[in-house]
Design a protein around this nucleic acid. Structure first.
Lengths: 343, 343
DNA sequence: CCAAAACCTGGGAGCGCTCCCAGAACGTTC
DNA sequence: GAACGTTCTGGGAGCGCTCCCAGGTTTTGG
């Protein structure tokens, strides 16, 4: 019934390349060259085009560029969401911030995807379908086949954290091994004799690397490395593991917790058992989340630079996309110890 | 010099619509109809197309769809990054998770953008240039002109958190006012007489709404509302504000902190001053971050469902894109009180 | 039984760009 | 001054899809 006037949806199509060309008095080709920073454009033409672009507020249509050209000017960040959480959240946000910082100024869009059980095939189809130039994978559980699949399909891929299964796929990680070793040495140097650890799950490289580093640090000093309990990167699991440790060795005088988030739980258990930190039991964490400094007592911990992780992954990917060769197959970022009062 | 063999970059172009059409024995048009779920396709044809798609692993080229069609099948999430941080991180991650959950199954991509000082014009050009169908804005500082600009340009926009400046732009927020009021009433009901608050910055709606709710809750019970200190959503500022409050009123017996993250700092200060929580001073926070439950003592707080915030924003935006009318101009999500031991 | 409506199908223009090619406007060299 | 490079420029095909239109087939109804 409503045979009204023209629908108001006449969203004015954006200025097109051609209009810029006309305004600048040159051809489409020349404008295209200017936009893409190609050579063989006279400085006079270049100048005119820039003027026109500025005046018209022109923004090139990405869809058209992608369709016509060979690359998508777009990279994906894929989060393998095993179960419910997106990883411990602060970690994710930090990486993302780094990725974005590194992308600043580059004309590359970031699309975010989460893999859910079931739609994995869709995901792979999409990613390998030429919609993105490369992929950043964040996946905590080690056996994820996704990175392998993507890499095999010829799609430039960089993984965050050492992948357990996917050998050969480039990755960036913190130097968990050496960080944990430093923690162990610190504890030994402070005179602790009976040192335990709360490690992450056995199927995650981050957990295993930190455990290995801790063991190495202790065994070099000829200290027993048998006091191990496992958690799953939640405060609750940390609390339970601490109780476990206390039962195994009531005389324990120090513990290295493979994640601040678990250390929070450990602190609670220690408190509940009437153990004073650091007098009775010294505690060292890992990550240096914001909450490490506000824990009671403030947590001594191994700091990893999460934002730098994101930046480095992105740099590695962009370098590969730019055609650089002989890039390192993996990159390990140094950690640093932050001494507060818990140890 | 290197007139080598064919470059290995012959990345096989993906299966195209036409191939699907041929495999299914129908025309391109019919395949297109099936993909877009349009009517007027015989079930036999529909079936054949689905078969072909499955067999060929076809994934439609988004760039081409965007270019040919009228919509981009893509929405942007813009994070106004005032200063350094992306907001308190857990918040951001939670919203993002909600957005993604709501988008699941819909063929819509999510691109992430952060506005930096300086490139705002670029951002606006890009967003208004038809590259995205709609925008989700997350911006903490209230006066951000971005939502207004986008909405004025006719781009469907939904803001997270009540915008201070941009009246008229649809938004979704937690019911901060009533949540804070509930906290105040709870404290009054428990017999506290001298109740202070640590509020967020005055230029953020979330801070002001919680402050207003607290005031309303107290004044209804005829309790004095003069005991106010301000922080900026960091633990440090919370600690400082608590010290301030203690100086203003050494006899204070309860405090409502407008964010768990600040409550952590307040707890430290209280501890340092020898005040027992909750015996000497009761503490109620807001947000219910993961760390609220691991604080010492575990924090009583007002829970807001951050993931639901993301879901609701997305629902609102998608509804608008689907052409629904008479959508609510704003949506307030209920909060709930979580009683632990700090009050 | 024939007209009108509803349902289905294929053909083809064109979205805005990139990239290839042909050619113009310059030198430069023998 | 003919032959060649080098620098610059414009024209036009075509990327893979959607959407319009024209036409065919079935159903409906008087």
């Amino acid at each position: 019934m409503t045979d009204a006037v023209d629908p108001p949806k006449a969203r004015r199509p954006n200025t097109r390349l051609e209009e810029v060309a006309r305004a600048a008095g040159v051809s489409k080709s020349t404008v295209s060259r200017v936009i893409n920073g190609e050579p063989y454009v006279s400085s006079r033409a270049r100048e005119a085009v820039h003027q026109a672009i500025g005046k018209l507020g022109y923004s090139p249509n990405q869809a058209a560029r992608t369709l016509a050209g060979s690359r998508a000017n777009c990279i994906a960040m894929v989060v393998s969401e095993q179960g419910s959480r997106v990883l411990n959240d602060p970690f994710f946000a930090g990486v993302l911030r780094g990725v974005h910082a590194e992308l600043a100024g580059k004309r590359v869009q970031l699309v975010l995807m989460m893999s859910k059980e079931g739609d994995e095939q869709d995901l792979v189809n999409y990613l390998c379908g030429g919609h993105v130039d490369g992929v950043l994978v964040i996946s905590l559980h080690g056996q994820d086949p996704l990175p392998r699949t993507l890499a095999d399909a010829g799609l430039p891929t960089v993984v965050c954290g050492r992948p357990l299964g996917a050998g050969g796929v480039p990755y960036v990680d913190s130097d968990n091994f050496n960080g944990a070793m430093e923690a162990a040495r610190y504890l030994v140097a402070r005179g602790h004799k009976r040192i335990g650890t709360i490690a992450g799950p056995r199927d995650m490289a981050v957990g295993m690397d930190r455990l290995s580093g801790w063991k190495r640090g202790l065994s070099q000093a000829r200290v027993d490395t048998g006091l191990v309990a496992y958690g799953d990167f939640t405060p609750e699991s940390g609390a339970a593991a601490m109780a476990d440790l206390l039962e195994q060795a009531p005389d324990l005088d120090a513990v290295f917790v493979g994640a601040d988030i678990m250390a929070l739980g450990a602190l609670q258990t220690l408190h509940a058992h009437g153990k004073k930190v650091p007098e009775d039991v010294a505690v060292v964490g890992f990550d240096d989340l914001m909450i490490a400094s506000t824990a009671v007592p403030p947590l001594t911990t191994i700091r990893q630079d999460v934002e730098q992780l994101g930046r480095t992954m992105t740099w590695r990917l962009m370098a590969e996309l730019a055609g650089e060769e002989n890039l390192p197959p993996f990159l390990l970022l140094p950690t640093s110890m932050v001494t507060r009062s818990s140890a």
